[in-house]
Amino acid sequence: MAGAMGLLPKTVDALTDNITVMALTLVALLLGGSLKLGTLKSHGVDILVISAAIVLLTLGCVTTGLTLLGVDFSLAVVLASIATATAPAATMDVIKKRGISNRFTQIITGIVAIDDAWGLLTFSLCLAIASHLTGGTDPVAVAALYEIGGALFLGLMIGLPAAFLTSRIEQGEPLQIEELAVGFLTAGLAV
């Protein structure tokens, strides 16, 4: 928006896509780091059920609403899948500023972290469905498997070594340079 208004120099405006990808990757890295194994063990079912319900309800309501307004179904499904995304940075900021750590904040943190994963999976599936509905040649399952499988493969190939490197598995505190390197590597390979 600022680039369209001429407020940013063209050199900076050209970098906004890359900056956006980096920011989202680093927020996801921070969220993933805040979701501990103990939290998943004690609240995992609650987190998964609530986050799946949020995504499905949002997907259903937005798709229905857009379709009733006359939007093509394939476009409505894709737009609805985008609507499932949340603002994790704002939620995490409020929790951090309040300094409260209890069952509720642990579940909210888990929902926000898992919700973005659900959103990405939903977007990949809906994009494959929309592509198929508009005459795409790839079967829906193949297109979705390619997107989701590629993301899982990249996550495992980077995530496991990075978990050791940033002291997520062993005791210790990660260095900021290690976390930034993992974030930049992940974002670069994803793009």
Results as ranks from 00 to 15, higher is better:
Val182Ser: 06
Ile47His: 04
Asp46Trp: 02
Gly65Gln: 14
Glu147Lys: 02
Arg103Ile: 05
Thr20Lys: 11
Gly172Asn: 10
Leu75Ser: 07
Leu35Asn: 04
Val27Phe: 13
Gly44Tyr: 06
Ile111Glu: 02
Ala53Gln: 14
Asp13Glu: 15
Glu173Lys: 08
Lys41Asn: 08
Ala141Met: 03
Ile95Lys: 05
Ser42Glu: 14
Thr86His: 05
Thr16Ala: 08
Leu40Trp: 10
Ser34Phe: 09
Val55Leu: 14
Gly33Pro: 02
Leu24Arg: 04
Gly183Asn: 14
Ala85Leu: 13
Gly99Trp: 10
Ser42Ile: 03
Leu79Gln: 05
His43Phe: 10
Leu26Pro: 13
Ile82Asn: 00
Gly159Val: 03
Leu66Val: 12
Thr86Lys: 01
Leu40Val: 13
Ala113Met: 08
Arg103Asp: 11
Gly3Arg: 01
Leu31Glu: 11
Leu127Asn: 06
Phe153Lys: 00
His132Thr: 02
Val191Glu: 14
Gly3Glu: 13
Leu156Gln: 01
Ser101Arg: 14
Leu57Arg: 08
Tyr146Gln: 14
Ile54His: 09
Asp13Ile: 11
Leu68Thr: 12
Gly6Ala: 02
Ser131Met: 04
Val27Glu: 07
Leu35Phe: 10
Ala23Arg: 04
Ser167Asp: 14
Ala14Ile: 03
Ser101Val: 07
Thr166Pro: 03
Ser51Pro: 07
Ala14Phe: 11
Ala151Lys: 01
Thr86Ser: 10
Gly183Ile: 06
Ile108Cys: 00
Asp93Gln: 15
Ser101Ala: 10
Gly155Phe: 06
Met157Tyr: 00
Phe164Glu: 02
Ile169Arg: 05
Ala151His: 02
Asp72Ser: 12
Ile177Ala: 14
Ala117Thr: 14
Ser34Ala: 13
Thr166Glu: 09
Gln176Asp: 09
Ala2Arg: 15
Gln106Lys: 11
Leu29Val: 12
Pro88Tyr: 04
Val78Asp: 09
Cys61Ala: 13
His43Glu: 02
Ala52Leu: 15
Leu37Lys: 10
Asp138Tyr: 06
Cys61Tyr: 09
Ala143Asn: 10
Gly110Pro: 00
Ala181Phe: 12
Ile107Leu: 00
Glu178Ile: 01
Leu7Arg: 06
Asp115Thr: 11
Leu156Cys: 14
Asp17Ser: 07
Ala130Trp: 04
Val78Ile: 11
Leu75Thr: 14
Gly110Trp: 03
Leu145Glu: 03
Ala87Ser: 15
Thr137Asn: 12
Asp13Val: 11
Ala90Tyr: 00
Ser74Leu: 05
Leu35Met: 08
Gly149Leu: 08
Arg168Ala: 07
Leu68Ser: 13
Gly135Met: 05
Asp13Gln: 13
Ser101Glu: 15
Asp115Met: 05
Ala53Asp: 13
Leu180Trp: 14
Asn18Ala: 10
Ser124Thr: 03
Ala87Leu: 05
Val45Gln: 03
